[in-house]
């Protein structure tokens, strides 16, 4: 039985996801100007542009020189996710995340085990393909099929059959591939994993507190990012694939995980280095 210290961060994530969706909906239907547009491109208070840098990259790949506020918007979004780090978009903003979590819950609840195994690196291949196909066809290739885009747009601008993508993703994740869409296939997640790789803000890890109970590994949607040896050495989760969902932080009975800034961690490096050496000499 996994001991959990609380669900505050989970609730905060759901609240953020819902608030963003609601603000977009109000922008479209009630002339509320906080957020207008959608996740592809939007404006905050009709002044600050935001845009999906991966969508912009695909448009650039089609050979169309994107002009206008969308470039500034992409730069702002890139800067934010670089600073926050990892795939914070995936865990805090993307409307597919609750679906993926629902699917994972259904799998646990009904004891459905993995029928398929696809490399977590597949998403980088899909990312590359998206750019290649954009260049070949002259249309932003992922944007015209993206289940994220369809679900999000049709929730905001009015329902259509694109909402079937909800069922598609849940079915895929439940019956075919565990955490299939978000964990292995989604090129947008791959893109943000690359953007957030070297970010200063990370989930810090104190190897001294860890008693290797493994609860964090059980709850983590991207288990490959929890590499105890590497984390003991650096003092944090360093993979860009970490979604910053902070489940590990909430579940850890010994508070081994804490948010951390890289340069602060650098200052407190000494004891961790000792730990690292100890681990190595033990091995």
């Amino acid at each position: 039985m996994i001991h959990s210290t609380g669900h505050r961060i989970l609730i905060a994530r759901r609240a953020t996801q819902l608030t963003i969706l609601l603000l977009f909906w109000l922008g479209a239907h009630r002339h509320l100007d906080v957020l207008t547009g959608n996740l592809s491109a939007s404006h905050v208070f009709r002044t600050i542009p935001l845009s999906d840098p991966f969508a912009v990259l695909q448009i650039l790949a089609t050979g169309h020189l994107v002009a206008g506020s969308v470039l500034l918007g992409a730069a702002i979004v890139l800067a934010c996710y670089f600073l926050i780090g990892g795939r914070a978009f995936c865990a805090w903003v993307c409307p597919v995340n609750p679906l993926a979590d629902l699917a994972a819950w259904l799998r646990r609840r009904f004891g459905i085990s993995g029928q398929w195994n696809v490399s977590r690196h597949t998403r980088y291949g899909v990312l590359l393909l998206a750019l290649v196909v954009s260049a070949i066809t002259g249309v932003a290739a992922f944007e015209c099929l993206s289940p994220i885009g369809m679900i999000h747009r049709e929730l905001i601008f009015g329902p259509g059959l694109g909402l079937l993508a909800i069922a598609g993703i849940v079915m895929l994740d439940v019956y075919v591939l565990k955490r299939g869409w978000c964990g292995s296939l989604c090129p947008l997640g791959a893109f943000y994993a690359l953007v957030g790789r070297r970010s200063p803000l990370r989930v810090g890890f104190d190897a001294g507190r860890c008693d290797h109970c493994g609860d964090c590994v059980v709850v983590c949607p991207e288990r490959q990012v929890i590499d105890f040896k590497a984390m003991a050495a650096s003092g944090s989760i360093d993979s860009g694939e970490c979604t910053r969902c902070n489940r590990c932080l909430e579940v850890c009975p010994r508070d081994a995980y804490q948010p951390t800034l890289r340069f602060v961690r650098g200052a407190a490096k000494h004891p961790e280095e000792g730990e690292h050496h100890a681990t190595q000499s033990a091995a």
Partner: peptide
């Protein structure tokens, strides 16, 4: 049309 389909980011801000 071809250039439009390539450049439109599908954000719906014109619609709003």
């Amino acid at each position: 049309e071809r250039d439009f389909l390539a450049s439109c980011i599908k954000c719906g801000q014109c619609v709003e």
